[in-house]
Structures are given as structure tokens and as C-alpha cells.
Design a binder for these strands. Structure first.
Lengths: 240, 240
DNA sequence: AAACAAGCTGCGGGTTTACGCAAGACGGCG
DNA sequence: CGCCGTCTTGCGTAAACCCGCAGCTTGTTT
């Protein structure tokens, strides 16, 4: 059995290496990559079936890498090992995991024991292991209550990118009014009004900008999500 | 000699601990804190004069902590040890360092050797040690060319928070038109137009939102800067 | 089939933004 | 002192944004 580790930080990488050795005696080879790009390449070359991967990496982040890896071989088992449980990450991962694939999401703050258990569960038993904290987010995020629909999230990303209503309409194939409808819906859910008007007339917020701010503060968006969205946007722009 | 380490990540913390021991034989005590709040408290209790600190921490980030520590005892020597050289961090640090204080900014990607050297330079020789990469940013950031004035940065933060022109005017004691002037200035510097109109009429951006996006992508803003700004805003709002 | 909820769309109007134009205000400089 | 560059402010306009109202198209429920 072979395990591929994809992780930026040398300290964390060697820690993972040890953890893998300790948890999986049946594993005879461990290979390492220090960024997403290298990770993809190694996964392809070695036909890796077992991967442990960080989400936040400079060159090409974990979600990007995982997507292309899973596209090539959907049965690959991936354990995401991340510092954060940003809703943006959780949503990003949920979007790309293939049907029936075994994967895991464990926080770096988890104990050695938990990490080892997760390694065995996923790689040996093919079971999904999602950190409790992440699980909670996932439920409320994908469930309708208090969560955001895909279309709501989509428009959130669009205004975060700085598109005008008109541009969004064109991009998503909607009328201007529909875009604005969705915006209102979004403003509602993000509670932009509460913080906005308050009592006085003066403390007003710019709804559109404020929505993005709140989304950021709530980690519904983060840098990596923005980066990804920006890349998609450019792609779309080039395709006229 | 006593050294205080303030760092989230246990692995990095113990690495730092070892590095300090190796680099500073004259150091007899090392104490550790795992977040900014605890760091402040320990610094106060122990009257720490030598601190190594991460910037990105969950509970209270390094900049916040450093500010209050320096406020109480400006001669404290602090070495910032960070993963990133976001312009937002660099600017944040430059703002709070007291006149003549010895401090350092070293990236986590630096070699053991560099870290040890920095430790000795700052704590023993009272010299400032700024990572080359960070230094570059600092120069161009604070120098006028291609850098952002304080007033430009200020208004960038304000729109990133989602304030309206009117609210900004009130907050900063300016007229509406002046606020809009500064916005235009900002749009210019951020090159919002280039990406905006391009050729066609359709691909238009919402300048205000786009400026924030670009600032984020360029790491002129980041989560921690936003968080800080939001806290200041709330404070201002409460003070009517 | 009728009833209903949910989403898309056009219309209209009130507000906010973006910005050109031009008139002061302030600080250096020859 | 007068000249000049930078910053501020008011006026005015065109565009973009926010949103209530109402008519339509769906898919779902009873």
C-alpha cells in the first residue's frame, strides 16, 4: 500500500509521515509533495489510491488538486487535513467529492489518536470520516434551514467578484430583475438589514458590499474561494 | 533571559522552542502561549522583554496582541514569525511598531539558520531583522510609488466594510464629494478600469465591489485586517 | 383538475454611485 | 508676494442599484 502526502508545511508534512507510518503498518511507501501541482503529478504518475492532503496551499490549493485527481480516478481516497473549517472549504469539498467516494475531513487540531483512526477508517475500511465540527457546518450548510442554496451562493460569489447586475444576468442567463431578486434573497439571509439601518438614518450600509463583508467574516467566503471564482470568471470572459 | 513564545500550532510551537534553545544559550526560561489573549497576559505577568509571535492566530491575532504589549512596554522586542507576507500584515505591523523599537519579521519558510540568526540579532543585538521579501513590500508599500497612501488605504477599508459614501463621510469628517474623490483615486491605483470595461459594453464591473476584490486578491486586505477593521467600526458605531 | 408555492420577468420610481466641471483653501517655492 | 500643485467642496447628470407590484411559467400537492 502506498500513501501520498500533499502538504505545504515541512513540519506538518513530517508529522503526517510519522502518523501514517504508525497508523498503517500495511503501508510500505510514503511519497510527499509540497504543493497542489506537484501533488497532482505524483498522484497521476503513481496512480495513487490513498492521499492525505492539506487544503490551504500556495501554488494550487487542495480543492483544485482534489478535483482533477478525482476527475481522473474517482475511486481515489482522500483525507483532507486542514487547519480550518471555513464554510467555504466545506462547501468547496462537498461540491467535488464523487458519488460514493470515501473521503475524510479532519482538522489539524485533532488529536494524534483521531488522525490515526481516520487514516485507518478511510484507507482500510473505505469509510467517510468527517470531523464533528465540519459535519455540523455541512448539515446546516446544505440543509435548507439557515443554509445557502446553490443559486444564492452563486450570486454571492458574483458580487464578491465585483460584477454588475447586468454582467451577472448575462453570465447566468437571467434577466436583470431575477438577479436583483436573488440579491434581495441573499441580503435577507445574510441579515444585512439588521446591521444596516439600526435606528438612525446615518449608519447605513451599502448592501451589496456589506453582504460580501459579512460573508467573509462568517467564512462563507475565503481567499481560496475567491481565487478560484476569479479564475473561473476569467475563463468565462475569455470564452467571450 | 526569558523568552515568550506565542503560537497557535503545537508543532510550530515546539519547533520554535527548540530553535530558541539552540540559538540562545543565555536564555534560561521559555514560556509558551497558544493564542494572542494568553500571550498578552503572560507578557504582562512576566514583564517579558523578548517575544516570538505568530501573526495569524484564532483568538486574538498577533497584531492586536503586539499592539497592547507595546503600548504597555514599548521597549519589548518582538519577532514576528509568519507564514505569509501579505501586504495587509506588513502594513499592520509597520503601523504599530513604536519608535526605535527592535523587532523582526521572519517568514516560516526561512531556514533554521536564518531564524536563529534573527533571534540573536533582535534579542541580543537589538537589531531589526526584516525578511527580504517583506522588506520589499514595505518599501513599495510605504513609499509613494505604486504604494497606497494612508487615506487611500483608509477608504479602501471603509468600502470593504460595506459603508456607504455618506457613512464614510460622516465617519471620517469629510464631505460626500471628497469621499468620492478618494474613491476615484483608489480605483485608479487599483487598476479597476483595466479589468473593467475592456472592449465590450457588457463585461462591466461594479467598481466599488471590484476594488475590494482586487485588494483581497493582492493581499492588500486579508481576513485579519477585515476583522480588525470591523471591530473598530463597531466601536465607532457604539460611540454614536 | 384545481390549487398552490416558487421562481422568472417587466415596469416604475426612489436612492446611491461615479465623475466632469469649477470654485475655494492650504502649503511650499522661487 | 504671486504661482502652482494638492486637497476639499458644491452642483449637476447619467448610470447603477434596491425593491414593491403584478403578471407568467413551472413543478408539486390534494
Amino acid at each position: 500500500m502506498k500513501v501520498l502526502i500533499v502538504e505545504d508545511d515541512p513540519l506538518h508534512r513530517s508529522y503526517l509521515h510519522e502518523a501514517v507510518n504508525a497508523a498503517l503498518p500495511e503501508c510500505d511507501t510514503v511519497i510527499e509533495a509540497e504543493n497542489g501541482t506537484a501533488g497532482e503529478k505524483l498522484a497521476r504518475d503513481h496512480k495513487s489510491a490513498h492521499i492525505v492532503m492539506d487544503l490551504q496551499m500556495a501554488s494550487r490549493n487542495g480543492i483544485e488538486a482534489a478535483r482533477t485527481i478525482w476527475k481522473e480516478r474517482p475511486e481515489t481516497r482522500i483525507l483532507f487535513w486542514s487547519n480550518y473549517s471555513d464554510e467555504a472549504y466545506v462547501r468547496g469539498v462537498s461540491r467535488i467529492v464523487p458519488d460514493g467516494a470515501a473521503y475524510g475531513y479532519v482538522l489539524k487540531s485533532a488529536s494524534d489518536e483521531r488522525l490515526k483512526l481516520a487514516l485507518r477508517s478511510i484507507f482500510i475500511e473505505s469509510q467517510c470520516v468527517i470531523d464533528r465540527e465540519v459535519r455540523g457546518l455541512q448539515q446546516k450548510s446544505l440543509g435548507q434551514t439557515n443554509g445557502f442554496t446553490d443559486s444564492e451562493y452563486e450570486i454571492l460569489v458574483d458580487i464578491a467578484l465585483g460584477l454588475t447586475d447586468r454582467a451577472i444576468a448575462k453570465r447566468r442567463g437571467l434577466s436583470l430583475r431575477s438577479v436583483q431578486n436573488r440579491l434581495q434573497q441573499l441580503y435577507d439571509k445574510l441579515d444585512v438589514y439588521q446591521t444596516a439601518g439600526d435606528d438612525h438614518e446615518d449608519g447605513r450600509f451599502n448592501l451589496r458590499a456589506r453582504a460580501v463583508t459579512i460573508a467573509f467574516l462568517r467564512k462563507l467566503l475565503n481567499y481560496s474561494a475567491l481565487e478560484r471564482a476569479e479564475a473561473e470568471l476569467q475563463e468565462w470572459l475569455d470564452g467571450k
